[in-house]
Design a protein around this nucleic acid. Structure first.
Lengths: 155, 155
DNA sequence: CACAAAAAGAAACATCCTTTCTTTAAAAGT
DNA sequence: ACTTTTAAAGAAAGGATGTTTCTTTTTGTG
């Protein structure tokens, strides 16, 4: 999937679709200043080019009773392919892990884990992290407050 | 906004809406096993209760040329209300900062910053972080690889 | 068992999506 | 400068979908 060239219309379209993924094509067309047909063709092109990876409903963690975010720094004992692949495979399967990145710095991975409360986090660690082979260190940083939390890319 | 009680239908609805926020009400109804009208009423209720905070298009960072994610650990010099409020106010305005949490541990805040490349990140630091008053320490952890990156809450 | 309240299904109207066709505008070549 | 070609925009129509209202069914309670 190659990088893509965007003009002002495309950027406006993406902006509004990031803001409201369920906006009707008519409203979108009106806001970006195109006819519905032209707007629709651009949206389809952006989807086909892969600029738009998908659409999602955003849930409110508080209302859903999943209000505890934890940033977990994980270091592995060995850095061979087998160890890391196994770790990543498991992490992908854990629904509590919303995000996981391999990073530079002291730790090998940063995870963001979301659970209902401390009890659940304790269980998550004991059952799903400490049971993994080859974990050297785990450092938990608890989110005290959420200042900002989006996936909206700057345009 | 109070926490909400969900039954199996609601959970199925939310699951599918997280997976595809633009699914038609008809398809959704079919997949969860309800009539379109009943399904639609539940979706509306979930929106009104705040369980569904909104909908969004998910963009592909690679295709958009915004492929560098950085986890930035920030410590403040003073921890009074004025310092932190000013910091948070600025961070909210920076479109490069997708996520920002106040956390326990060595740092006061964890940010995830997304930029096109190192040059842009250098500029971001110099122009938007180092210019802030009362910053004690900034530690940058660069994402080498993205293993997982969603906002899908476990249901 | 009967009643009330809540939720589900059916159907109809309104709206929106998606396609096709036509028109306009921009680019390239002579 | 003019024609030719290509690409994208607008208009319009048919089909699909959303949203409402009304009726029926289910569920819970006295």
């Amino acid at each position: 999937m190659k990088q893509v060239e965007l003009d002002g219309f495309d950027r406006k379209i993406l902006h509004h679709l990031q803001q409201d993924g369920r906006i009707s094509n008519q409203q979108l067309a009106e806001r970006v200043g195109l006819s519905p047909a032209a707007c629709w063709r651009r949206v389809r092109a952006l989807e086909e080019q892969g600029a738009i990876a998908g659409y999602s409903a955003l849930l409110n963690p508080e209302v859903m009773g999943q209000a505890l975010s934890v940033f977990v720094l994980v270091s592995l004992q060995r850095h061979n392919l087998d160890s890391t692949e196994e770790f990543e495979r498991q992490v992908l399967a854990y629904t509590e892990v919303l995000q996981c990145f391999a990073v530079t710095g002291n730790a090998d991975f940063v995870l963001r884990v979301v659970v209902p409360d401390m009890r659940s986090y304790d269980r998550f660690l004991n059952e799903k992290i400490f049971t993994l082979q080859g974990i050297a260190q785990v450092h938990s940083n608890f989110a005290l407050r959420e200042i900002k939390n989006t996936q909206h890319l700057p345009l």
